[in-house]
């Protein structure tokens, strides 16, 4: 059920977009109004969430670490896993953002029947799938710049040559096209196959995966199978980014499904877990140096609290304490 509703939603959107791509009245709506609205929601929503994060209170210094902290000179510290300086933090963040370091450390708990014993084993598949997906997505996005730029900068055909180095078919098979679909299918299968992950999965998790799969599949269909009029699509894309939009008649309905999916992804982005794109930079457990023993961090949100110290309390009840024969801090320190 958690997967069926998102799947039905995606298929419904695909059906509506395909029908809309056939009808002359809705082509401008899907090809012009929808992308602009989606981009507006994306930019404003993304900025809004990041600004709200920036203004939220961070009272304590809370890096989580997994290496030896810098202490005495003769104890070897781990400056990246337990950074005590900005440079270490930068290295740690770079490893996290570019190589998903914390997923690489993923381990899976498993209850062994005989015993029973609880076993923890390394599990690198999630790391590999996530890395393959994210890097492929980046390459695919950069490749799409060729539709939005005129003249096309020279590095884009060069990137196509690298991505198509297998030289299979015409147009040439892009490695990232195959990898992104394989990775998405793995990430999806993982949510079904593993009982605990299935229990933890929410409709939003499936929605994002189905949506990304939909975008990839429609793109692949257009490039390798149904074929499209690239000239018309380039005109449409260029028109959008130069604010002189037009929808050429030669653009087929499948393209509108692709474009609607992409617009939906943009519009859905700020409201979803996909915001981890911005959030990863703002994770206080990762982007702070673990120097709270070397430097004093005062909570900037502290306000003056009326306190009654022990000294004041002892002063107040001095006679009573003394007459009961109880020890007094004041006299002990004097002696």
């Amino acid at each position: 059920m958690k997967a069926l509703v998102p799947l039905a939603a995606i298929l419904g959107v695909a059906g509506l977009a395909y029908a809309g791509g056939l009808l002359p009245g809705t082509r401008a709506l899907l090809g012009v109004v929808l992308p602009y609205a989606a981009m507006g929601i994306f930019l404003i929503g993304f900025s809004f969430r990041v600004v709200r994060w920036a203004w939220s209170a961070l009272p304590f210094h809370i890096p989580t670490t997994c290496g030896q902290q810098k202490s005495l000179g003769w104890i070897r510290s781990n400056p990246i896993e337990n950074p005590n300086h900005k440079a270490g933090v930068a290295a740690r963040m770079a490893l996290e953002i570019l190589l998903f370091r914390s997923l690489f450390r993923n381990s899976q708990a498993r209850l062994e029947e005989e015993g029973p014993r609880l076993l923890y084993a390394e599990n690198k598949w999630l790391w590999l799938g996530a890395l393959a997906f994210h890097w492929s997505l980046l390459v695919v996005l950069v490749r799409h710049l060729r539709y939005f730029l005129s003249p096309v900068p020279a590095f884009l055909p060069a990137l196509d040559a690298v991505d198509g180095f297998l030289q299979i078919g015409a147009p040439q098979l892009f490695v990232t096209d195959a990898v992104i679909v394989a990775a998405l299918l793995y990430l999806l299968a993982r949510r079904f196959a593993n009982g605990r992950v299935r229990y933890l999965s929410l409709p939003g998790d499936f929605f994002a995966l189905f949506l990304l799969l939909g975008i990839a599949i429609t793109g692949i269909l257009m490039r390798y199978f149904t074929k499209v009029d690239l000239e018309g699509i380039k005109q449409l894309a260029l028109g959008l980014v130069t604010f002189s939009p037009l929808v050429p008649a030669s653009v087929g309905p499948l393209f509108f499904v692709h474009l609607t999916f992409a617009s939906l992804l943009l519009a859905y982005f700020p409201f979803s877990k996909l915001m981890h794109m911005g959030g990863i930079f703002l994770s206080p457990t990762r982007n702070l140096a673990n120097d709270s023993r070397a430097r004093r961090h005062v909570n900037p949100w502290d306000y003056p609290v009326k306190v009654h110290t022990y000294q004041e309390w002892e002063e107040e009840f001095h006679d009573k304490i003394a007459s009961a024969g109880l020890p007094l801090e004041k006299e002990r320190t004097r002696a």
Binding site: L145, F148, L149, S150, P151, L238, V241, T242, S244
Partner: peptide, 13 residues
Amino acid sequence: LPTWRDWETHANT
């Protein structure tokens, strides 16, 4: 970025 780049190069659509 595409908008800025196309604006700078006076892209012909």
